[in-house]
Design a protein around this nucleic acid. Structure first.
Lengths: 146, 146
DNA sequence: CTCTTTATTGCAAATAATTTGCAATTGCAT
DNA sequence: ATGCAATTGCAAATTATTTGCAATAAAGAG
């Protein structure tokens, strides 16, 4: 679904941004590229720990901040909860959050994007970024169906 | 802009929900009805304190939680910041946040709402609530304009 | 490969936002 | 007025995240 980005590419990116390629960073980047979900810091910490017990939670936080700054990841705060991260893919998308399970489904609507632009323009603004989150629950199958 | 709601109506609402009308609650509700902006808990606490020095921050938090539960207010977390509140008006709206000033502009697009429903439906979901936030900066006036 | 410099790390402590336990207080139905 | 349960203020606890600092480890120079 999301365009896979090789970890080697990330290392190149970090280098160009003037950062060092460290063991914790490699591990965290690997986890990010392999994650299909939107883990929060503690979850990333858990996954990283399973690879290298010595990685600290602070490093996870610091790394996420750095990766966000160079545009490698996006940070979300669904319903005011803890920050959850995902690798920035080439294509923008919004999120539908299953309020029962916490699952996150990605979607994109060019039409909505256009309308947003239109609205902002009418209000005299240029959109820098936006956040569209739908919170819902799985629809009960129509009776009669099956 | 927003439909004004009398504080007496709120007291009625609280009563019906089985809550007592206390001095702190009256004060907080008054502040909410008079606020045109989207204050956070500390700001509400400050405003409440200026009326009654004895009100505590915990009470502000507890009251906001209660008011949210009975649908009197809405809670926002713009860009992962602290929760900010506004009285729930009759009409739903979304927000455009000026990333330079922090100002919040309200808007509504029936078309976008419809598209959201459509998308959720296509994914097999019913929308329970949603969050649409545009973050932008005032557009530089076109050169030549004036 | 070894040395040197400086970024990065882990850890513990600090901060920020919010919640909670509890004894004292207060609203409200009698 | 009286009584009792809901509510409050305060302090301490939680949760999420950041930061200071001494120890460690990248990466360039030789």
């Amino acid at each position: 679904m999301t365009t896979p980005i090789l970890i080697a590419n990330y290392e190149e990116l970090l280098r160009k941004a003037g950062f060092r390629i460290t063991r914790p960073r490699k591990i965290i980047l690997t986890i990010l590229t392999e994650s299909e979900d939107h883990p929060d810091a503690i979850e990333l910490f858990r996954r990283a720990s399973s690879i290298d017990k010595s990685i600290s939670l602070s490093t996870v936080y610091r790394t996420m901040k750095m990766l966000e700054e160079i545009g490698v990841i996006h940070r979300h705060a669904f319903d005011g909860g803890p920050a959850r991260f995902e690798q920035a893919s080439d294509s923008h998308h919004d999120h539908l959050i299953d309020i029962e399970t916490g699952d996150v489904i990605e979607f994109h609507s060019e039409k909505i994007e256009e309308l947003q632009e239109e609205i902002a323009r009418a209000l005299g603004y240029d959109i820098v970024h936006h956040r569209l989150e739908l919170y819902g629950r799985k629809r009960a199958p129509k009776k009669g169906a099956r």
